Amino acid sequence: MTQALLDAIPDLPKVLLHDHLDGGLRPQTVLELAAAVGHELPARDAEALGDWFQAAADSGSLPRYLETFDHTIAVMQTPEALARVAKEAVLDLAADGVVYAEQRWAPEQHLRRGMTLPETVEAVQAGIDAGVREAAAAGRTIRVGQLVTAMRHADRWQEIAELAVAYRDAGVVGFDIAGAEDGFAPDRHAGVWKFLAEQNFPTTIHAGEAAGVGSIAQAVHLGQADRLGHGVRLMEDVQLSEHDRTAELGPLAHWVRDHQIVLEVCPVSNLQTDAAPGVTTIADHPITRLKELDFAVTLNTDNRLMSRTSMSHEMRLLVAEAGWTIDDLADVTLTAAWSAFMHHDERRALVDDVILPGYQKIEGALR
Rank of each mutant, 00 (worst) to 15 (best):
A164S: 14
L6T: 05
H343Y: 00
T29I: 12
G214E: 15
H243L: 14
L111V: 04
F69P: 08
F69I: 07
V192H: 01
A211L: 09
W105N: 06
V165D: 03
T333F: 00
P277D: 03
G231T: 02
E242L: 13
P251E: 11
P186I: 04
Q103H: 11
A247P: 13
W105Y: 15
A86E: 10
G358F: 01
F195T: 05
N303T: 15
W157L: 12
M115R: 03
D352L: 09
G171C: 11
D58Q: 13
P286C: 07
G23V: 04
V30F: 01
G323C: 08
E122S: 03
M342V: 15
L49P: 06
Q360F: 01
L17P: 02
Y167A: 04
V265N: 11
N300Y: 14
A8P: 01
F184D: 10
T2C: 06
K14D: 02
I282Y: 10
T298L: 04
D331P: 00
A123V: 11
A197S: 12
P79A: 15
V90A: 03
Q218H: 00
A336R: 09
L82C: 09
E32D: 15
T325N: 06
A154L: 14
L147W: 05
V144Q: 10
A57R: 07
S269L: 03
A48R: 08
D58R: 11
V319Y: 14
V265W: 02
R143L: 09
N200K: 13
R257T: 07
L5K: 13
D258L: 11
F295L: 12
F341C: 12
E80Q: 13
I9H: 04
L305K: 12
I205A: 02
G323Q: 02
G364C: 05
A197E: 14
W157F: 02
G208E: 09
A190T: 03
V319I: 07
M342K: 15
I205T: 02
A211T: 07
D11L: 07
V268I: 13
A275N: 07
G60Q: 06
E363I: 07
E236Y: 08
P27Q: 10
L271F: 11
F201R: 14
F175A: 14
A276M: 10
A336N: 09
E292Q: 15
G364T: 12
H343Q: 12
L271N: 01
N303S: 15
V75Q: 01
E102T: 03
A283W: 11
A89L: 12
A106T: 13
L293E: 04
A283L: 00
R347D: 05
V192L: 07
N303Y: 10
